[in-house]
Design a binder for these strands. Structure first.
Lengths: 110, 110
DNA sequence: AATATTAATCGTAATATTGCGATGAATAAA
DNA sequence: TTTATTCATCGCAATATTACGATTAATATT
């Protein structure tokens, strides 16, 4: 199968999973951290930073772009990437709401 | 390949990815939300709640247990699950630190 | 125009994930 | 002791993901 039965879950649950999934690979975590560190557009040097082959990095960038977490603009022969701020804030809200649920006050039960 | 090259990334990046990955499937999100909602041990009725076959739910529970996010105790013919609070808090700290990075003040560059 | 540079896309191989039926182990109930 | 219940594990099929070499498209440089 290998296919998540999304129709069995709520839109909210599927959205949380979709966002979380993109962070489920260290290369994408690394790309995002680099974009945050640079605090601006990164043009071209991403492949050297990440340490994977160019097609592989390109593929991870595509996934990040598809989810709307980064923007990419062609700049001559280079492409410049940066965090999509509005979408990042929206995603953050969704995931933190899930992570930050109140923990039971009850003592441990099991 | 299908194999993440973890050795190319920092321990922190791999840890973030490992945690995020487990939330990358709506069934696991659903299981965790249910455990939070019940606010206690859930004994037995998880399969009905989630809507997937029993072996499938069992497998998702196993992954959550392996990452330490839930505890499971045998209670007769039933097994009782609940959130592992300390580990949840620790995981939350790691993921929120990643999500909550400061956004550039700069106007959009691309 | 010819060449170089950059990054997307295609194709493919290797591995991982998801889902479930069948089975098994363990306890409870009769 | 027999039967029922519950859940873990095994084994398999279907699909997804990861990685990269080869190629392509686009612009820059000479």
């Amino acid at each position: 199968m290998g296919l998540a039965k999304t129709e069995k879950f709520t839109d909210q649950q599927n959205e949380i999973a979709r966002f979380a999934k993109v962070f489920g690979h260290p290369a994408r975590v690394s790309i995002l951290q680099h974009l945050f560190k640079i605090d601006a557009c990164v043009c071209g040097d991403l492949v050297d930073e990440i340490g994977l082959a160019q097609p592989t990095v390109s593929q991870h960038l595509k996934e990040l772009k598809q989810l709307g977490l980064i923007k990419g603009n062609v700049e001559g022969t280079k492409v410049c990437y940066c965090i999509h701020k509005e979408n990042w804030v929206a995603m953050k809200k969704v995931l933190i709401a899930f992570l930050d649920q109140d923990l039971p006050i009850n003592p441990d039960c099991c």
